[in-house]
Amino acid sequence: MVRVLINVPKKAHRGEVIEIKVLISHPMESGQRRNEMGQPIPRDIIHSFRCTYNNQVVLEAELFPAVAANPFLSFFAVAEDTGTIVFAFTDDHGTEQVERAAIVIE
């Protein structure tokens, strides 16, 4: 489990465009570096990220080693109904982590 900071407005009006910001605490080891013994350091990155709003896709991202350590993503969703925004991402070990944020439509 890695630490994830999620920034989603708690409340929104119906049809409002909201900004979603996600910061995942992860080294994103590129696989291009070598350690002090000259051995390549194996790649360890988050390679896929998916954000859904009430099961509808907001963003599906495929990430490569060129994404900086502690990947940050900012994107926009359209607020339609009260519900949950789900963030799921997978790293090179195949571990999937899921985070959730609630949003209320007023």
């Binding site: 907001v58 963003l59 495929e62 900086a68």
Partner: peptide
């Protein structure tokens, strides 16, 4: 660097991130 696919709940076709 990355591929960012949008879906039905996307509000604006814009993405921001940090790269190497």
């Amino acid at each position: 660097i990355g591929s960012f696919r949008f879906g039905p709940a996307t509000g604006r076709p814009r993405i921001a991130t940090r790269i190497r």
